[in-house]
Structures are given as C-alpha cells and as structure tokens.
Computed example of a mutant assay.
Amino acid sequence: MPSRPLYPSSAAAAAKAIADWGRPAGDITHLVVSTSSGAQMPGIDVRVASLLGLRPTVRRTMIYFQACTGGAGALRVAKDAAENNRGARVLAVCADVLSAMAFHAPDEARPEGPAAHAIFGDGAGAVVVGADPRAADERPVFQMVSASQATIPGTELLVTGDFGAAGVEYNLATPEVPVLVAENIEGVLAAAVAPLGLASGGWNSLFWVVHPGSHLIMNSYEKVLRLEPGKLAISRRVLTEYGNMIGPTVIFVLDEVVRRRRLDGEGEGKGCEWGLLVGLGPGFTAEVIVLRACK
C-alpha cells in the first residue's frame, strides 16, 4: 500500500508544475506517476488525477520501484508519450516517502543500515512535457533531445528492494556503489552522447542535472569525468538540504538548475547549451537524458 502522504504531496507538486506552465489542468492529456513507496490498485495516479481535476480521459501510466532512477525514468516515458501523440501535454510526477517506508530497527546482518537511512528524505516533484510548444503561451526551459537507459551486466543484486514482514526492505550495497559508478559512468555517458556528435571528452562544456545519491557518488563523478569545481554543486546542495528522496531528487536538482539559470541570466545571447540529466539506480541502471537549453 502507498503511504497516505503520497497523495497530497504528489498533487501539490503537480499543481505547482501546472501553475508554472500557465495553462489549465484540463489541458493535460497524459499523466505519468512514479513511486517506490508502495503499490495498490488502482494506483495513486487515479487519486492524483482526481485531486488535480484532470479530465476523465487523461491517459495514465504508473511506474513502480525504480528507486533513484524513478524521476529520470518518468521523464523518459513522458518524452515518448509527448512525441508520439500530436498536441499532447504530459504531466510527469514522482513522489517518495522514505522516512517511514525505508526505516527499520538495526539489523546485525546489515550494519550499514542506520548510516544509509540517515541520507534519505521525503519529496515530490513534477514536470510538464510537450513536443510542440505554442509560442503564444508556453516557454519551454529545456529540450529533451534524447533519452537512453543502460544496465551494467552482473549488478542485479547490488541495489535491491524487496517486500518483507516490515514492508519494503532495501539492500543498498553502500560501499560498492561509488566504485561501480567510477568504473562505468564515463562509458555510459559517452554512449549516450555519441549519436548526437557531442565530444565525449568535453564534460566540462555541459551543464549537469545529476541525481546525487550520496556525496561519495558525487566524488566518483568528479574524479572520473575530471569535472571542474562547482559543476555538481547544485546536486550536492539538494542532497544536503533535502536528503536522497530517491525518485524525486533529480527533479529537485532540475528545478534548482532552472532557478539558478534564470537568476544568473545564463543562456542569454549564448545560443544553445547542452547538458546531461543522469539518474543511477537498481539494476544497476543508468538513465541518461541529453538536454539542450536555448536562449
């Protein structure tokens, strides 16, 4: 069963996204909802659609238990729906409640448990996605140029979640994950940008929207990709202030990137800039979305 706070938090995040979009909720044609905090039939998408006043004909998709790739995965599905349905406006919502769902009493078999749970938090985020912006009343922030998913072979048991007597029990494989990131992230990103003709070695020329996971994972990114200081500052700030909310975390980072760019006037007079949105999660799976921001 999903946690009851998922309903209001999901609806509140979605209502904010719709308000920022500037058009009526009834204009939403598709709804994608992602959560790793429980499951039921019908899904929380039905309740969220009702709370928002979406049309009964809205086409709904539920995504369950993608954990830290939940936000990026929801955006990928929303992108596909928008591009394959003319005039579609897709509301992608991701919400998770970790403080109650993932916390358990100390377990001698998993001594890393309390420390790992200390980085978790609760959150909800939402984005409106379309493929044919109307200049009169819509101002797209980013173009999602491509979206890819890659699973590293032999890692299926490193980051897992299972239903047990105490609810959802997570195995985080905490020490192994930063090493796994260091060994694989550059190859995954290079494969994602290669079809677009972007130089795989020019990582510092991009802006970054990265699901932080932990500070150790951020360290792995910076070392392997030789990133300049500050490239992942927003991801670190979101992790410090809100914790790892798993799925919604990358949407919090995206929102802060948008806010900073507006405040700093970035992109004005510069033409187009390229960036990467990255989420890493169970499987061990990487979701990569190539972004383009034009002035």
Rank of each mutant, 00 (worst) to 15 (best):
D27H: 13
Q66Y: 11
V97F: 04
M101C: 13
E273L: 10
G197D: 05
R237A: 11
V128Y: 03
T249L: 06
G269N: 08
A233K: 14
L232T: 07
V90C: 00
R261G: 15
Q66K: 15
P24S: 12
A82I: 05
G265F: 12
A11L: 05
P5H: 13
A82R: 02
N171R: 12
V257F: 03
F65Y: 12
I63R: 00
Q143N: 14
D45F: 04
T151P: 08
G22A: 13
V32P: 01
P175N: 14
G123S: 00
V127K: 00
V159R: 03
G247P: 05
T285Q: 00
R47N: 06
V288M: 01
S3R: 08
E228R: 15
F163P: 02
A147S: 15
D45N: 13
R259I: 14
G247N: 08
P140H: 06
V58T: 12
V128G: 04
A74I: 05
R59E: 09
R59L: 11
A13C: 06
K270G: 07
A165P: 06
G243K: 10
W21F: 08
G230W: 09
A192I: 05
F65M: 11
R292Q: 15
M1D: 04
L216S: 10
R110E: 14
V253C: 10
G43T: 12
V193N: 02
C68Q: 04
G267F: 11
K231Y: 09
V90I: 00
V145S: 10
W203D: 01
D255A: 15
A116D: 03
A293E: 09
V177A: 11
G202R: 06
I289G: 10
S205I: 03
N171S: 06
R110Y: 13
L196C: 12
H211R: 07
G230F: 07
A92Y: 01
W21D: 01
A95W: 02
A19S: 09
G130A: 08
I234V: 13
V127N: 00
N171F: 03
V177W: 03
A109E: 15
T151W: 10
G22M: 13
T174K: 15
C94P: 03
L31E: 03
G213M: 02
I217F: 10
V129K: 01
G154C: 05
A78I: 10
A25K: 08
T174C: 15
G73C: 02
I251H: 07
G265E: 12
C294M: 14
N244A: 07
K270E: 14
D20S: 14
V128F: 09
R236T: 05
A11Q: 03
D20V: 11
H104N: 01
A116N: 09
P106Q: 06
V97S: 01
G230I: 09
G38Y: 04
R89K: 07
A191C: 09
N219Y: 07
F120N: 06
S214F: 05
P42K: 08
V210C: 12
P153R: 01
